[in-house]
Design a protein around this nucleic acid. Structure first.
Lengths: 249, 249
DNA sequence: CCTTATTGTATCAATTTGTTACAATAATAA
DNA sequence: TTATTATTGTAACAAATTGATACAATAAGG
């Protein structure tokens, strides 16, 4: 969804957009030792949904996802990757979009392009929670972070999309060095370990974790962090370079 | 492409199909210690292409890929997975399909659905070379195996699709236990090691490889194989169960 | 029955990972 | 000032995994 929903709505044939194809983006953040995802609440409908959008007919699909990500977070240069195409016929359900349009006082014709079957390309993004500026679109009441373990009821198969995104993140966390994208600029080793433990949903051994992370040679010690606690102050670390995937679609 | 290409061709608006979306399948096989992919040669055009097809408007996308795989190999119950969506605008090139239709004596109107921009969902399949029956479709001269290192010039971005499929296979070979899908029913440890070495493009240590494979507990010794060579006969192994991914799209 | 090439596996070394321990050190209180 | 406390950084060792080498077992063929 972008800010010009009335344009999509009145554009009954969907001119200028790829028909039947959308992107949905699972935007992960990390805060208060919890994994969060960004969700939109649709006006009057009680429905929650992933940030998604349609693809301009002269736009790269990956670019469309990046545009969606940017319009909901005001962030650029973010870790963003495809993870799955949701293309089962059983997910075809024009109900939600119809309800949204009707709640706006618009009664779409039966052959309206937005009511046709859509295939969705799933993306996941890893963002710095503190830098994202959640921004609702024209048809949503809110754009907010929700903890993964207390999500509201979601539109269509968006819960499954989130589940699969998390699975992918868990699998790719070790191989690719992508966890850092969820951290703030500076962080302690404890912060980082907490992130890993939350994503992987298991305890890690402190000494081994620290040894491994330092061994990667991608962390730089910046300063010490005096928290006020009655104990040795931890170092603050900085990630030396962003890990963004190459786009070779 | 299916056997009824004239139906696609005369169906100018693409009724019954999802517009602008296709599947392309990189079908891997292993023979003579070489990785092979199945390619189609299009009539009169000198173009080679991956087996691909369109999606019925009431069909799961994954099912469409499975249908394509089955129609080109006569195989069912095959390891088949999505690996990437190729959706860059720059890949839009109606030339090849136009050439194919014209070579058939059909001059398509400019707004023919097959000449519009297509997004392609990439799949890769791992098949037993000896069981596949390469089957051309109506518009191709041949359907044949080609060694990965001596591929003919390919249509559009199909070479890139193959490259990315191979990358994915290399990355997933260790984690998931999928290499066995490329073997014949019975194989020696040497055969299996040769497969791994070919896919990963590096030498492996014989003793360690054997120890690891046996340690997985998924191989069963069937018999010995007397090759006629002047040396100890290797065991023949069988894979205990097919490794097919769950379909949760 | 001796030679030859290859297989299956044992053995030990090297590396990586798991575990425990302990010194270093900020705050606080005696 | 000096103990006390909690947490961090890292050393030290154990356990597990992987790399490398060696060697016995064994099908052919002479």
């Amino acid at each position: 969804m972008n800010k010009e929903f009335h344009q999509l709505e009145n554009n009954i044939a969907g001119e200028g957009f790829l028909p039947g194809l959308a992107v949905d983006t699972v935007i992960f953040g990390f805060h208060d030792n919890q994994l969060k995802v960004l969700l939109l609440a649709y006006k009057n409908t009680g429905l929650y949904a992933l940030p998604g959008g349609f693809i301009h007919d002269n736009e790269d699909v990956n670019e469309a996802a990046r545009r969606v990500l940017q319009s909901r977070t005001a962030l650029t240069n973010i870790y963003l990757e495809q993870f799955y195409v949701f293309g089962n016929y059983s997910r075809y359900d024009p109900g939600p979009l119809k309800a949204i349009m009707q709640a706006r006082g618009y009664n779409p014709p039966a052959d309206h392009w937005l009511l046709k079957r859509f295939i969705s390309v799933g993306y996941y993004a890893l963002v710095d929670f503190t830098r994202a500026i959640p921004t609702p679109d024209e048809i949503s009441d809110s754009c907010d972070w929700y903890s993964l373990n207390e999500l509201p009821a979601l539109m269509q198969d968006h819960q499954q999309i989130i589940n699969k995104a998390l699975e992918t993140l868990q699998n790719e966390l070790d191989q690719k060095l992508i966890g850092f994208n969820l951290m703030t600029e500076e962080f302690t080793m404890g912060d980082l370990q907490s992130l890993y433990e939350t994503i992987l949903n298991k305890k890690l051994i402190r000494a081994a974790f620290q040894r491994k992370m330092l061994g990667l040679g991608i962390l730089e010690r910046v300063a010490k962090k005096w928290t006020g606690g009655a104990h040795k102050a931890p170092y603050l670390y900085k990630f030396v370079s962003n890990r963004l995937p190459a786009d070779n679609s």
